[in-house]
Design a protein around this nucleic acid. Structure first.
Lengths: 340, 340
DNA sequence: AATCTGAACGCAAACGCTTGCGCAACAGCG
DNA sequence: CGCTGTTGCGCAAGCGTTTGCGTTCAGATT
């Protein structure tokens, strides 16, 4: 069918090994022969079979990327940036969309990436068992989410600092009843919701505001969840005058709920999100911006570097990217007399 | 390092071929032996090397997916749905993010998927040369975008009907100056912008409205582009009272531009989009809903079916999914005296 | 009892590449 | 002008599977 390395070798009048060396830029081939081979290969439309190459060399030039849900903006953006880095370095990306628990479980027990990838970038937080499975692959590992884990290079942000700037902003505006929409129901071993919650509590304590557990609701990191959570918060006896959502998508859900309740933002309720979602600007959402694409790119680069220098094994780096509060139109001082 | 098929064979006291047959559910293996092998394999944590298997069998159990930009909601959503189908059928997904022209060109000249995938799903519209390259792979091809192409199974929507319902809605509300934000600068051979434009023109003609070329602007299918386009439309001598955007993301950009110009939606200007983006509901955008995830899933299923029955070669099916107009809060009758 | 028939399993040849090693040919050295 | 390196290339042994074919053997058929 399609040309094999032997076809090229024959056509160029050399051996297969020379073709292999020539096409991969190895030394030991004269310039003239190399040019000849390159020309012949191009003319025959030859591409080396990755399967055969992997089998022979042990390297796959493929990176496995694990994602909980590709369709979500955050993951799509990280993946996009990471893929660019990988492909620029000559690596292909094997994508695993591990949304549901069953699929996820199946993945980690069968581990289809074994012997198939040179490294793994995971955008979901593996539990103890899962990360052990990944480590058993014997390849470099990286992640852009969750806290530090042995064996993983992780690039992330300072969740505490981000949250603090957001909540402090609300406090400075004069708010005293500040609600929070969190994503507590996420996977275990995910420190993000916990870190953000702690920071939220700290700022309240710092400001001398008593914490009211009724002002916390779970938004599941989705728009719908955010809407549900906001609706819950609106139902308590003394609703919040401001809300900190742990993600922009939940914040947007909150905005929707507020609109449904005929409440005005920010006049009646202030809302601040987290992420600086692509569309946060469209709805004028005040939020904590984090460099999402940069995190993906950086994680990819760190992984590639480990592949380049197989010397020092797991550096287990820990990179922290900058965050900043972006002020838009969903936050303002509370009304003099409270929401009613 | 990790166990090979021979290790399993030795441990189970059988030959490698029997292990291969047993683990893949082929006939010719007694139940007892199969159970034994399964147990041994599990205990050794054995997974067959895909590279070796592909090399020997010619099948890769991998599907190549070509995407212009994973981070964009539409593509992320299609990819998500398609990946689920593929992985459920035991196929892995090789993702190629072909955003920039250089990367795209490099991909099509080097064709790294050659001998690496059993089928290709492309979410970008290949031009003549590119689709010829894909056909040369000799594997089933499918797409969820663009018009019909020889050799491709395509699942899509009725762009004309969708546009007609959107623009007719504006006409019925009483609008006469109806602008359009299109994505004309997209790749060639992409019939969507053209179909939608033609439908737009048809509805105007039908309603006896003279077409004003100044009321068309290019939004590049991005939020920023939509914002730019809306700004342009606002700058013409008699600005439109309503705008049809060919995508929700452009519509959202338009909303942003309108907000910046202190114009109210829908009082001053009506906006209708296309897609029913996940966040369209949040901003109350009236839009033409299309089943994005369903299209990805359906395309994947059709591809898998072709892989199952290698008998009849390219059926080149053409599936059309339903669309419907979703009325929200960005459309209303024009003001009695026009926008000023 | 001799023959036939499957089922169950092993043998060995691919599959298409990479890579250590060997061997010329040729340059530079004293 | 021999000697030692260096360079350029071919040989052949893998890499870990799959699969067509051959062999064995128990049970059914005459």
């Amino acid at each position: 069918m399609t040309a094999s390395i032997n076809d090229v070798a024959r056509a160029a009048g050399v051996s297969a090994s020379t073709v292999s060396r020539a096409l991969r830029g190895r030394s030991g081939v004269s310039d003239e022969v190399r040019d000849k081979i390159t020309a012949v290969a191009a003319q025959l439309g030859y591409t080396a079979s990755r399967s055969a190459a992997s089998l022979a060399s042990g390297r796959t030039f493929t990176i496995g990327v694990l994602v909980p849900y590709v369709g979500r903006w955050f993951f799509g953006t990280v993946l996009d940036a990471a893929e660019r880095e990988f492909s620029a370095a000559g690596y292909d990306v094997l994508l695993y969309n591990l949304g549901s628990p069953e699929i996820r479980k199946r993945f980690f027990t069968r581990l289809p990436v074994r012997k198939r990838v040179d490294a793994v970038l995971t955008l979901l937080i593996p539990d103890e068992e899962e990360s052990a499975a990944l480590r058993s692959l014997g390849v470099p590992l990286a992640t852009t989410v969750g806290g530090s884990r042995p064996g993983f290079t992780v690039v992330g942000i300072d969740d505490r600092a981000g949250t603090e700037s957001a909540v402090r902003h609300l406090v400075n505006l004069g708010h005293r009843r500040i609600g929070m929409i969190s994503g507590a129901s996420g996977p275990l071993h995910w420190t993000t919701p916990i870190d953000r919650r702690n920071a939220y509590l700290d700022v309240l304590a710092d400001a001398g505001i008593e914490h009211d557990p009724a002002l916390e609701a779970d938004g599941d990191y989705t728009v719908e969840g955010g809407e549900r959570a906001m609706t819950e918060l609106l139902a308590v006896s003394r609703p919040p005058t401001a809300v900190y959502a742990q993600s922009d998508e939940m914040a947007m859900g909150a905005l929707r709920a507020l609109r449904r309740h005929r409440l005005r933002v920010p006049e009646d309720v202030s809302v601040v999100g987290f992420d600086d979602h692509e569309l946060a600007d469209v709805v004028g959402l005040t939020t904590v911006a984090q460099p999402v694409a940069d995190q993906g790119a950086e994680a990819a680069r760190l992984l590639l570097r480990q592949l380049d220098e197989p010397g020092a094994e797991p550096p287990t780096e820990q990179v922290q990217m900058p965050i900043r509060l972006v002020l838009r139109e969903t936050t303002a001082p509370p009304r003099p007399r409270g929401p009613q």
